[in-house]
Design a protein around this nucleic acid. Structure first.
Length: 176
DNA sequence: CCCTGATTCGC
DNA sequence: GCGAATCAGG
């Protein structure tokens, strides 16, 4: 289907009425919403009801699209795929028994003791870290680092953030 | 997962 | 010029 004058006119009208690209595509027929959007852009009438669109889409860094040529091409060298992975999950110290040989429990936990939970609260082996804390802090220094990690890089591309979190949790499992 | 528009780029 | 693929977000 080509963009005849008539179809373009319908497009303009419907777009001006606020219909979405997919709705217009269905109404006109023979085109996809992508085609509609593409045409809208080419006609220069995008962004209809929002004159001031300050931010949102600074610049894209697209991936190399697979082309027919590339797909059928040799593709010899597989990407090295240097997985630049998650940084640095903060290392936590091993739980250290208190002087009395036990770990801190809810009964022995004092204000100056780290309240980082260890083990399963639902079972009998639940304890607290018990390391000294800095005046009024809930956690010892190492656990405070874990507890109060600046949330960075959330949103967008969950892969990295998720991997980081997984790594942290893995660390916990190992250390506790 | 559904949807939206935006952008790029091979054709 | 066209629009699929992709991206970024709701």
């Amino acid at each position: 289907m080509a963009w005849t004058d008539e179809r373009v006119e319908q497009l303009k009208k419907l777009w001006a009425e606020g219909l979405s690209a997919s709705q217009i595509a269905k109404k006109i027929g023979g085109v996809t919403r992508n085609a509609v959007i593409g045409k809208v852009h080419r006609l220069g009438l995008s962004g209809r009801a929002a004159p001031s669109r300050p931010s949102s889409r600074p610049a894209r860094t697209p991936k190399p699209r697979v082309t027919a040529a590339a797909a059928s091409a040799p593709a010899k060298a597989k990407a090295p795929a240097a997985r630049k992975p998650v940084p640095p999950p903060v290392q936590a110290p091993d739980p250290e028994p208190l002087p009395n040989g036990e770990f801190a429990t809810v009964l022995t936990l004092k204000d100056s003791m780290c309240k980082w939970p260890i083990g399963d609260p639902a079972s009998g082996d639940f304890r607290f870290c018990g390391h000294r804390t800095k005046a009024g802090d809930a956690y010892c220094e190492a656990h405070a680092q874990i507890a109060y990690q600046p949330q960075q890089k959330r949103k967008r591309k969950t892969s990295d953030a998720t991997a980081a979190l997984d790594a942290i949790q893995a660390t916990r499992r190992v250390n506790f």
